[in-house]
C-alpha cells in the first residue's frame, strides 16, 4: 500500500510538526443546549397532528368564550311553529338547503313553516323550534367547562394525595393506597350515578360527582413519580442538607412532576366531557332546558332515524373535541417522554 503515497503531492513543509489542536477549543459544545421544556416544545412542534389539534381546540375554546355573551339567537327560546327545521344557509349549498324528504318527496320545510325570508337556522331547529347552532355553541361551552372543572378537582385532590402518599411512605402510604384500592374497585360510573341521585342534578353536582372518583388516576401517577423522584440523588441531597419536606416538594417535585400532571390533565378533560355526555344521555346529567353536548346527543338520538341532522352536528362536535384532546395529549406525552414513543 506504500505506493499510494506517490499519488499525494508532498512538499518540503508537509512534515513540519504542528501538534495537537487546543483541547479547550475541541471540547467546546457546538450546539446550543436546550432546557428540558424547550426540548419538549421543539418535539411537540414536529408533531403535526398535535399542533393542528391544539389550534382546533384554541378555536373551539374561543368560540365557547364568545357564546357566553353572544349566540345567533337565544338557545333556549322556543318557536314551536318552527320545530324540526332542517339546516339552511343563505346560498343553500347541498345539505344546507332547508329542504327535507317527506315520504319520498322533497319539501321546503322553511316555506311550509312560513319562516320569513332571510331567517336561516344554520344547523336547523329541534323539536321545540330552538336554534340548534346556538344550542351547540352553548353546549360545547358547557361541556368544556365541565371537563375543565372536573379536571381541576383531579389536580386539587390528586396531586397532594399522591405526593403525600409517595413521600411519607410506610404506614401512611399503605393506608392511603388501600383507600384508593377500595374506591377504584367500584366502577367510577356507579359512584358518579349514586352521587347524582343524592344531589340535585346540575353543573355543580356533575362536577363534584366526577371529582370524587376522577382524582384517583392522577393520585396514582403522582405517587409513582414521587416515589421515583424521592430516591433521586438531588432530592436526597436536598434532604441531607436539611430542607423541609414542604420546600422540597415545591422546589423539586412540582417542576419534575409537571409533565406527568400536564399529560394526565389532557387525558382527564376528554374523559370528563365523555362522562357528562354519557350522564346526560341516560337522563341524569344537565337538566333541561340547558344545552350540553350530552343533552343535544340525547335529544338528537330520539329522532335520529328521521331527523338525522339533529344528531350529526353534536356527534361531530364531541368526536372532534375528543379526538383533538387525545391527539394533543398523545403529542404532549411523546414530547415530554420521548422514551415512551420511541
Amino acid at each position: 500500500m506504500a505506493e499510494q503515497t506517490n499519488q499525494i503531492k508532498l512538499n518540503k513543509n508537509s512534515f513540519n510538526k504542528v501538534g495537537a489542536n487546543d483541547v479547550d477549543e475541541q471540547e467546546k459544545i457546538s450546539a446550543p443546549s436546550l432546557t428540558f421544556l424547550q426540548d419538549a416544545i421543539r418535539r411537540l412542534k414536529k408533531n403535526k397532528a398535535a399542533i393542528i389539534s391544539l389550534w382546533l381546540l384554541v378555536i373551539i375554546i374561543m368560540i365557547s368564550i364568545i357564546s357566553i355573551w353572544w349566540t345567533p339567537s337565544d338557545p333556549n327560546a322556543q318557536h314551536v311553529a318552527y320545530a324540526n327545521l332542517p339546516p339552511k344557509i343563505a346560498n343553500g349549498i347541498p345539505g344546507f338547503t332547508g329542504k327535507a324528504s317527506v315520504g319520498g318527496e322533497i319539501v321546503d320545510k322553511y316555506a311550509q313553516a312560513n319562516v320569513p325570508k332571510g331567517t336561516y337556522y344554520v344547523l336547523g331547529t329541534d323539536y321545540l323550534g330552538r336554534d340548534l347552532f346556538s344550542r351547540l355553541m352553548k353546549g360545547v361551552a358547557l361541556s368544556l367547562l365541565i371537563g375543565m372543572l372536573a379536571t381541576l378537582f383531579d389536580l386539587v385532590i390528586g396531586i397532594p394525595y399522591g405526593i403525600i402518599s409517595g413521600w411519607k411512605g410506610g404506614r401512611t402510604d399503605t393506608i392511603m393506597q388501600r383507600i384508593i384500592e377500595i374506591i377504584s374497585s367500584i366502577p367510577n360510573l356507579v359512584v358518579v350515578i349514586l352521587m347524582l341521585l343524592l344531589f340535585t342534578p346540575g353543573l355543580g353536582s356533575i362536577v363534584v360527582a366526577m371529582g370524587i372518583t376522577g382524582w384517583i388516576t392522577m393520585a396514582r401517577l403522582v405517587r409513582a413519580e414521587t416515589l421515583t423522584l424521592k430516591s433521586q440523588e438531588y432530592v436526597l441531597a436536598a434532604r441531607t442538607l436539611g430542607e423541609s419536606s414542604f420546600k422540597i416538594a415545591i422546589k423539586h417535585l412540582i417542576p419534575n412532576l409537571s409533565s406527568t400532571i400536564i399529560i394526565q390533565t389532557m387525558f382527564s378533560i376528554p374523559t370528563a366531557i365523555f362522562f357528562e355526555a354519557f350522564l346526560s344521555f341516560i337522563g341524569i346529567g344537565i337538566p333541561a332546558p340547558n344545552a350540553s353536548l350530552g343533552t343535544l346527543l340525547s335529544d338528537g338520538q330520539k329522532t335520529f332515524r328521521f331527523l338525522p341532522y339533529q344528531m350529526w352536528y353534536p356527534a361531530a362536535a364531541i368526536s372532534i373535541i375528543m379526538i383533538a384532546f387525545n391527539l394533543l395529549a398523545d403529542g404532549l406525552r411523546d414530547a415530554f417522554d420521548p422514551k415512551a414513543s420511541e
Partner: peptide, 14 residues
C-alpha cells in the same frame, strides 16, 4: 490529527 501531539501539516491535508 487534532488530538495528536505529533501532528504534521500533511496530517491535516491527506
Amino acid at each position: 490529527a487534532p488530538r495528536n501531539p505529533y501532528t504534521m501539516e500533511i496530517d491535516h491535508e491527506a
